[in-house]
């Protein structure tokens, strides 16, 4: 057992837990963004900052990555934490102003203006999509490119990745992106599903050939079938209308 102090409260935890884990367990709220229970810890959004150590030697660390240590003194709501956190939200808002999640965070923490030049990138490079793809979908279709201000998320060589199964997991976890549809822009969009509308399934398949190892789990064949029948119904209806007329 490890004993540490969070906001003056003595708490106990097991080895291998992070500060965030402990805080959550005790019901202490720390805002997060790039953290997801099902994915590995990243520590990129810097929202979950907490102040550790004792005066005058304290520092800010991301609670989602910092391990709980014996005797650690943690404070989650100091002036220094709040100021840094507000600046992080402002920085995020300046690159992804359209994100509902970030807007909500801004409103919650009282960030009322963005003093930076707005860049509508709609991506804060939190890496949730990359981790989702690699860790949960076993895909590794997308990843980070470049470093510094040139960093972006894309597929290898910016082309349609053969690893991508169009599962949509990346879009599901994204807090900011507008990838739901960016229009037919082959150069920038990660998904580009509309451009590369290869049928996910073979023309003809049965249980043995279905690459999802189970008939129709991806839904394409079912959707195609229903669309087909819908179309047929539609044409039949219109023909009937013509006849009636």
């Amino acid at each position: 057992m490890i004993t540490l102090k969070i906001n003056g409260l003595e708490v106990k935890t097991e080895e291998g837990q992070t500060i965030l884990d402990v805080a959550k367990f005790y019901g202490l709220e720390i805002p997060t963004l790039c953290y997801n229970e099902g994915l590995s810890r990243y520590g990129g959004c810097r929202l979950c900052l907490v102040e550790i150590g004792e005066e005058p030697k304290t520092k800010l660390v991301s609670s989602c990555t910092y391990p709980a240590e014996e005797g650690l003194v943690v404070r989650t709501d100091t002036k220094r934490v709040i100021e840094a956190r507000k600046m992080m939200i402002e920085l995020m808002l300046s690159v992804a102003p359209g994100s509902k999640i970030i807007q909500d965070l801004a409103s919650k923490f009282g960030v009322k203006q963005v003093r930076f030049k707005i860049r509508n990138e709609e991506c804060i490079l939190c890496g949730l999509c990359v981790r989702m793809c690699a860790e949960q979908m076993d895909g590794r279709a997308i990843g980070f490119q470049n470093r510094g201000y040139k960093r972006k998320i894309s597929t290898p060589f910016d082309t349609r990745s053969e690893e991508c199964r169009l599962c949509g997991g990346c879009i599901y976890v994204c807090p900011a992106c507008q990838l739901r549809c960016q229009g037919p822009d082959a150069d920038t969009a990660v998904c580009n599903a509309c451009l590369t509308m290869d049928p996910t399934c073979l023309d003809f398949h049965d249980e043995l050939q279905c690459w999802m190892y189970d008939v129709g789990r991806c839904g394409t064949c079912i959707r195609e079938k229903t669309e087909e029948s819908n179309n047929k119904k539609r044409t039949q209806k219109s023909k009937q209308k013509e006849k009636n007329a």
Binding site: G43, R147, R151
Partner: peptide, 8 residues
């Protein structure tokens, strides 16, 4: 480019 604080 990992931390938004440093990159941005």
């Amino acid at each position: 480019g990992k931390c938004i604080s440093c990159r941005e």
